[in-house]
Each structure stands twice: as C-alpha cells, then as structure tokens.
C-alpha cells in the first residue's frame, strides 16, 4: 500500500483514477488544482505524485518546479499525466523534473500496472 497524491481538475478523471487505485488498496489524496497540490505535497510524504498537466492556478509543470525546489522533496517520484502526448511534450516534462510520463487518454489498468512497477522500483 502506498500513499499517492492525485492532482487533477477534472472530477470525472479523478473518480476514475481514485476508484481504480483504491481498488488496488492504495491511499489516495486528491487535489483539484496546482496550488492545492503544492500545499498537500508540503504537508505529506507521498510515495508517488500523479500530476495533470493542464490545471488551474499552477500547471503540472509549475508544480514540479515548486516541488523540486523543496529541500526534502527532491527525490519524490512524480508522474505527469497529460493530454499533450507528443514526444516534445514528454521531453519537456521529463526535463522539468518529472520522473514518468503518461499520455491521455490512458487505460486505468495500464496506469495501475505502471504505478505498481514504479512502487516496486521496476519501472524506468
């Protein structure tokens, strides 16, 4: 069981991800925008952070920058979920400090598989 933060402004997608991951027995926190996400990251230690790219207030990229500037959060694992699926977008995201990237629309099962792999240190 891992502690995971999901930052996603679309309620429906939140429901999808949360339902799926809770079924796998993970503890999920939800944030609706970038600001909320940063707040929650400050206060909690997450095993994995799932960030939507297009979010109000702070975009996923901005959140990553904030997080990477926090002294104790340099190595927290971050996965970016984005509708911007082109290779350049992926590279930009990874360059900004994200560890993983997943393009929308994603399969919830695939997402679970990747998260399990990451949590077990198998994914690259």
């Amino acid at each position: 069981m891992a502690k995971i933060l999901l930052a996603e402004d679309e309620e429906v997608l939140r429901m999808l991800v949360v339902d799926t991951l809770e079924d796998e027995g993970h503890d999920i926190d939800e944030a609706c925008d970038g600001e909320e996400a940063i707040e929650m990251i400050k206060q909690n230690d997450y095993d994995l952070i799932l960030l939507d790219y297009m979010m109000p207030i702070y975009t996923g990229l901005e959140v990553i920058q904030h997080v990477r500037n926090m002294p104790d959060k340099k190595h927290v694992k971050i996965m970016m979920l984005s509708a911007k699926s082109q290779q350049v977008d992926k590279e930009r995201v990874l360059a900004a400090g994200a560890d993983y990237f997943m393009a929308k629309p994603y399969s919830p099962l695939e997402l679970v598989e990747r998260i399990e792999a990451i949590l077990h240190g198998e994914d690259a």
């Binding site: 997608l13 999808l16 929308k104 629309p105 919830p108």
Partner: peptide, 10 residues
C-alpha cells in the same frame, strides 16, 4: 482527450 479518457477508462 479528457472526456475521451473518462469514456475509455470507465
């Protein structure tokens, strides 16, 4: 992609 993600996902 957002609604599509939901439709496909669910």
């Amino acid at each position: 992609r957002t609604p599509l993600s939901s439709v496909l996902g669910f």
